[in-house]
Simulated scan of single mutants.
Amino acid sequence: MNPRPVTVGVDGTLSARQAARWAAVEAELLGAALEVVAVGDRDTAAVAAREGLTEARDAATVPMGATTRRGDPVEVLVEESAHSRLLVLGNRGLGALRGLLSGSVSGPVAARAHCPVAVVRGPERLRDERPVVLGVDGTPAGEGAIGYAFEAADRRAVPLIAVHVWRDELDDPEWASAFVDVDPTEQERELLSERLAGWSARFPDVDLTRVLDDDQPVRALVARSLQASLLVLGTRGRLRAPGRWGSVAGAVLHEAQCPVVVVRPTPVATG
């Protein structure tokens, strides 16, 4: 059993109940316990926590516990993420976690969390056998997302589709200059292969498909989510200030039709 639990934020809404069920199944796949967290006044949070536990127990059999907290939802959830393997949120919040996916809470949580953040979206399909889809941005900042996606596909015994959307990079002079006298498609194909090569060697049983897509990034990834069990994204490190919420990841979180996991880059120790 992994010592760090999967943590799910609940507020008594239908969305939170779906998130609790999904989180329980994910904890089972990860070999982790599940911690249900409700934020709000004592009575409201206690009811939400009990409902979350009931939903989770109906979905999977793993060690479970519940915590009620008072305070700002963003700060509480970020604190909880520090000792969690995965933080799971619902699609929308109407109670103590109101606005959870409106951007006012979900963006700051995903941008600051100390662990990957999953947002449960789309039709409920527990133990889904459709592929895992990975959005590859081609930068070292996305390495954590690549590893997470390979592990998720391996755990689920499903194919992995790695999608690299690169057309928007041509609007950036820094990148466009690199394509002088070079076929950008071929260069991006090589970049994608390089990013995935080591992970393919580590997970030889994962059926990997590489896809180059020159569509608009959000549209391309949302379209792929229609046929995915999970969509995994990194946060762009090259042009993002520390802690800033990426526009692509943020938009995909609101439009995807399957659960989305956002994996922040791992900080590099200095000293």
Rank of each mutant, 00 (worst) to 15 (best):
N2G: 13
P3Q: 09
G9V: 09
D11A: 12
T13S: 13
Q18L: 09
A20T: 02
W22C: 02
L29R: 13
G31N: 10
E35L: 12
G40V: 09
D41Q: 13
R42K: 12
R42L: 14
R42V: 15
D43T: 12
T44L: 14
A45T: 11
V47T: 14
R50M: 09
D58M: 00
V62L: 04
G65L: 02
A66R: 07
R69L: 07
R70V: 10
G71V: 05
V74K: 04
E75P: 01
V76C: 07
E79V: 06
A82Y: 00
R85D: 04
L89W: 01
R92S: 12
G93Y: 11
L94P: 01
L94E: 05
G95I: 12
L100K: 13
L100S: 09
L100N: 06
V105A: 12
P108H: 03
P108C: 06
V109Y: 03
A111Y: 05
A111T: 02
A111N: 05
A113L: 04
P116A: 05
V119E: 12
V120W: 12
G122Q: 05
P123W: 06
D128L: 06
E129W: 08
E129K: 11
P131S: 15
V136K: 03
D137K: 07
G138T: 03
G138A: 04
T139R: 08
E143W: 02
E143Q: 05
G144S: 06
Y148D: 11
A149W: 05
A149H: 05
F150P: 05
A152E: 14
L160N: 10
V165C: 13
V165L: 13
V165Q: 13
V165T: 13
W166C: 08
W166D: 08
R167M: 09
D168N: 13
E169D: 11
E169G: 03
D172V: 04
P173Q: 00
E174H: 02
W175E: 01
A176Y: 00
D183C: 00
D183F: 00
T185G: 10
E188P: 01
E188S: 04
S193G: 07
S200R: 13
R202H: 15
R202P: 02
D205C: 07
D205S: 11
V206Q: 09
T209E: 07
R210P: 03
V211K: 07
L212R: 03
D214R: 14
D215L: 14
A220R: 11
L221R: 12
L221V: 08
V222H: 09
V222E: 14
A223I: 10
S225K: 10
L226S: 09
Q227I: 15
S229T: 15
L230I: 13
L231V: 15
G234F: 11
L239M: 09
R240A: 08
R244V: 03
R244F: 01
R244M: 04
W245S: 15
G246S: 10
S247P: 08
S247A: 08
V248M: 11
V248C: 10
L253A: 11
H254S: 15
E255W: 08
A256L: 14
A256T: 12
Q257S: 09
V260Y: 13
V262Q: 12
T266M: 01
V268N: 00
A269Q: 00
